[in-house]
């Protein structure tokens, strides 16, 4: 926990400096094409960009402490509002995709490890290679072509919810959870339908590292001495695989999961674009193009905090699975 504070401070400083280092002058951008030097100057002063860097930084930190992330110039709304609307959208997509990918990749990896050289092993290898080599926007477009354009099984790839449904009351920001809380099964199913294609697209991409890690972790666990001991003691294959090999193999898989989650949150920009998903990735790209300082800073900060949180969660999970880690903490 103590390590997170310097990380957060570092992120605040770096996100501030990086956005200032970006090329492009936001004052020129927002003053519009017809603006003259005087009006650009006016915009600059209004944005506080005429002040010195340390001054700007102090103002930024002061605002942050008050919970004010600033105003987004492109959307015209407070950055905090934008983020609270868009972050759950991205998180919902990423978490569903990761869940899906774990459901397929982990059993596949386990099967591939226990039956090396068979068709399951080859299938695992093909899927892993295909998953990483096909870019998400490509798989996304192919899926849309087949399941929306040709067969019509999937709804139109236009955001989180078809316009015939009403957005559920906002509690968590996750449509699946909010609609259930409201007891609105129809909206739940509607939101789920919208989620299927983008989450499959993302899952195909994230499956590869998880399946590969599960396979190799299982193989190394299965060849260890303690497996030999319980085989010699006559334990059944199921017990050996489940209780002895799989739990030990979980440790590296958890680490991989944390890494995959972190990069897929950033990498799903392309998926968001293809499926018109109002997520945080496309928001950040738009803000970056517009030199929208406040929005970019808000995005970087939100992501950093999320990563810190995810790492914490992974560490906690780790200490649940591996007693040796809890021991080190107690000392």
């Amino acid at each position: 926990m103590a390590q997170t504070i310097p990380v957060v401070i570092g992120v605040v400083v770096i996100s501030f400096l990086l956005t200032r280092a970006l090329p492009g002058d936001p004052a020129v951008y927002f003053a519009g094409d017809a603006a003259d030097a005087a009006s650009i100057q006016q915009v600059r002063e209004a944005l506080g960009l005429d002040k010195s860097m340390p001054q700007q930084f102090l103002i930024y930190v002061g605002d942050l402490l008050r919970g004010d992330l600033g105003q987004s110039l492109s959307s015209g709304q407070p950055v905090l509002t934008d983020l609270t609307y868009r972050l759950p959208a991205s998180l919902e997509l990423t978490l569903v995709a990761l869940g899906l990918s774990c459901l397929i990749a982990i059993p596949l990896g386990v099967l591939a490890a226990t039956r090396p050289g068979t068709w399951v092993d080859h299938l695992c290898r093909v899927l892993v290679t295909a998953g990483v080599s096909l870019p998400t926007f490509f798989t996304g477009v192919v899926l849309i072509y087949f399941f929306y354009y040709l067969t019509g099984w999937a709804p139109a790839p236009l955001g989180r919810l078809d316009f015939i449904y009403i957005e559920p009351d906002r509690v968590t920001g996750f449509y699946l959870i909010d609609s259930l809380l409201a007891g609105d099964i129809e909206t739940f199913l509607g939101a789920l339908k919208q989620l299927i294609l983008p989450s499959i697209t993302l899952a195909l991409f994230t499956m590869a590292p998880i399946a590969r890690m599960t396979r190799s972790a299982m193989i190394s666990a299965l060849s260890s001495d303690y497996i030999r001991t319980v085989r010699a003691a006559g334990l059944s294959r199921t017990t050996i695989l489940r209780t002895y090999a799989f739990r030990n193999a979980l440790l590296p898989v958890i680490t991989t999961l944390g890494m995959v989650f972190s990069f897929s949150l950033g990498a799903n920009v392309l998926v968001e674009r293809v499926f018109a998903w109002p997520g945080i990735g496309s928001y950040a790209v738009d803000a970056l193009v517009a030199s929208d300082y406040a929005a970019v800073q808000g995005f970087v900060l939100a992501m950093a905090l999320l990563f810190v949180f995810v790492n914490l969660l992974i560490d906690l999970l780790y200490s649940v699975v591996d007693p040796r880690i809890g021991f080190a903490d107690n000392e």
């Binding site: 260890s224 001495d225 303690y226 030999r228 001991t229 319980v230 010699a232 003691a233 209780t243 002895y244 739990r247 030990n248 699975v321 591996d322 007693p323 040796r324």
Partner: peptide, 16 residues
């Protein structure tokens, strides 16, 4: 039944 060399490795490290 069998008893092995290197007893520490012969036991599952994360099970009591």
């Amino acid at each position: 039944s069998m008893v092995f060399q290197n007893p520490r490795a012969a036991l599952n490290p994360i099970r009591t």
